[in-house]
Design a binder for these strands. Structure first.
Lengths: 189, 189
DNA sequence: TTGATTATCTAATATTATTAGATTATTATC
DNA sequence: GATAATAATCTAATAATATTAGATAATCAA
């Protein structure tokens, strides 16, 4: 009784993604994943270098997903509209895929080329989205970091219950983005 | 051979904090903590309700530490100076105590009264720091969230290697705070 | 000094990650 | 189509962890 499960790295990563989104990235285990795939845990070692290797693969896949989504979000948009679209895409990705979102944050131990590439891709998407502001190269990179910081900080606090008070969170997000856009317009510098 | 170790909750939490800062909150275990305290793991169950209970206590202690530091940071300061001092205190706490900083983010499972109190205290410190801007109650609370989001997002990306490019991170932080201060001054609204 | 309390221990169970090596299913070769 | 090679999966075993139960020894109160 050994009918093959027909696994491959992609199917395993997909199942891991589902588990991470459902139960959290931290509780993702080889045991739980194998069980979901109808297979014994050691089987997974045939495809990945342990739990760490699996999580690295998940991080890369998640980052690629996110990158593709961000790319679609800014197609045909420029300036404020593009920045807002990026921000809302990031936030909705985090809401829809909390496990994958956490995985994106977690850099693989050994800086994997695929990870580097996906990360660079997202930065480039963001830089292109900012092109309408006609920033210098460095200013654009700072602006990308600012956007990422703002959205990540907000989303992270939001998802982990950091905002206790009964005050509209969407409004806070709007204001954060308004502050960023104002800065990009140079109202202040 | 059972000379008592003379433990109490405080000593255990302190040792846990040291371990978390040294090796990361995620790798904090009952086994490692007991070993550092020169005691067998089951001993710790006399003081805390398992690893989760211990981590909750650590979260609360860390939040109280942070809150005290923030309180000191804004004494005798107002307006922009107070906001900048808050932001830099938050960031330096995260740098000096990465494990505790992570612990602060993690809300205890059961919303512990001590946790609620410490959280409320930090919000109040921040609201007071913003008093010079003469904001409405709601605007002040949004501003607190904005400050927390900005600093947390930046620090989190910074600590977890999210900023790959060789571009001055201090400068990015400065710009983020400049954007916040400009917003608070209402240059834009 | 004795008895009660309590801090700590040992022993045992369950779960997990991981490695080694056996077995069975598929594929390639003749 | 039979057989050999390959590859996917399994069983078995080891080590580490969290946790519970209950025993023991140190301290404290009377």
């Amino acid at each position: 009784m050994n009918a093959r499960a027909g696994l491959d790295r992609k199917k395993i990563v997909q199942a891991a993604a589902a588990l991470a989104d459902e139960d959290g990235l931290n509780t993702l285990s080889m045991a739980a994943l194998a069980s979901r795939l109808g297979v014994r845990a050691p089987t997974l070692y045939h495809y990945f270098d342990g739990l760490n290797g699996l999580k690295s693969a998940l991080s890369i896949a998640a980052l690629e997903d996110l990158s593709a989504r961000l790319g679609r979000a800014v197609m045909g948009k420029a300036g404020d509209e593009a920045v807002l679209s990026l921000a809302h895409s990031l936030r909705s990705f985090a809401h829809e895929h909390p496990g994958l979102y956490d995985a994106v944050q977690r850099a693989p131990d050994d800086a994997d080329p695929a990870w580097q590439a996906a990360g660079q891709e997202t930065v480039e998407i963001m830089v292109r989205a900012l092109s309408a502001y006609e920033l210098t190269q460095d200013d654009a990179l700072h602006a990308v970091r600012m956007l990422r910081s703002i959205v990540h900080g907000f989303v992270s606090l939001e998802l982990h219950g950091g905002f206790g008070l009964p005050l509209d969170v969407d409004e806070t997000f709007r204001r954060l983005l308004a502050a960023l856009l104002a800065y990009l317009h140079g109202t202040d510098r």
